[in-house]
Computed example of a mutant assay.
Amino acid sequence: MKTVAELLKLKAQKNQQVHTIGPDQMVVEALKLMAEKDVGALPVIENGAVVGVVSERDYARRVVLKGLSSIGTPVSAIMSAPVITVDRHKTVEACMGIMTDKHLRHLPVVEDGQLVGLLSIGDLVKEAIAEQASLIEQLEKYIRGE
């Protein structure tokens, strides 16, 4: 199975850049950034460290359902924290296990305290499907004697 480092290299160039937001910025700013960049979550960065993740799900559950204002509510009030991160050496399989066990949809990748990438459950599922397809193809060739 591939490692996180290998998976990050394979991501399309436009998906390699990680957009972030600060904990003191307003939720409306996070929503605008997510819409503009067509992403479902943003790592929350304070003093260079990942302190949380804010997602569309956080907005729906912690702003909309509670009747709060996205204009006057800081990201820190709705972000998911503490944040679970992985390093580049974890396998795709290990990341899928973490995301399944912790019910996460986004997993920040951190090296030496710095954010280097963000994996979505979609990234991991896409890779798992590709690996299974490759294994099936190899087995079919083996069975045919190729």
Rank of each mutant, 00 (worst) to 15 (best):
A41Q: 13
D58A: 11
S55G: 00
R57E: 03
G72F: 13
L118M: 13
V63T: 02
G117F: 01
L119I: 02
K32M: 12
L115T: 06
M34G: 13
E36K: 12
G113M: 04
S76K: 15
V86W: 00
R88S: 11
K32C: 10
A77V: 02
A130D: 14
H103P: 06
V51T: 14
G97P: 04
E29L: 06
L31G: 11
E93F: 06
G97V: 09
I129L: 13
M99C: 14
I121N: 10
G67M: 10
D58I: 07
K90W: 06
R105K: 07
V116M: 05
P74W: 01
S70L: 12
S76G: 03
D123C: 10
G40N: 08
M79A: 12
L115C: 01
L31T: 09
D38T: 08
K102H: 14
K66L: 15
M79G: 12
V109M: 00
G67A: 13
A41S: 15
L65F: 02
K102R: 13
L107C: 01
R61P: 03
M99K: 14
T73Q: 10
E29N: 11
I98Q: 11
P43Y: 03
I129M: 12
V109A: 01
T100H: 07
P108M: 10
M96N: 07
V39W: 06
L115W: 09
D87S: 14
V109W: 01
T91M: 07
V63L: 02
C95D: 05
K37D: 13
D38Q: 11
V28L: 09
S76F: 06
S55K: 02
V39P: 02
L42V: 07
V28H: 11
T100Y: 03
T73V: 10
T85Y: 03
A128C: 07
K126L: 07
G52Y: 06
T73I: 09
L115S: 10
S70G: 15
V86I: 03
H103E: 14
A30R: 03
V27R: 01
K102Q: 14
V27N: 00
V44R: 04
V110P: 01
V50E: 06
P82N: 15
H89K: 10
D87L: 06
E46S: 14
I71Q: 12
D123Q: 11
V27Q: 00
L115R: 08
D123L: 08
S120Y: 00
V116N: 08
E93V: 11
L118R: 09
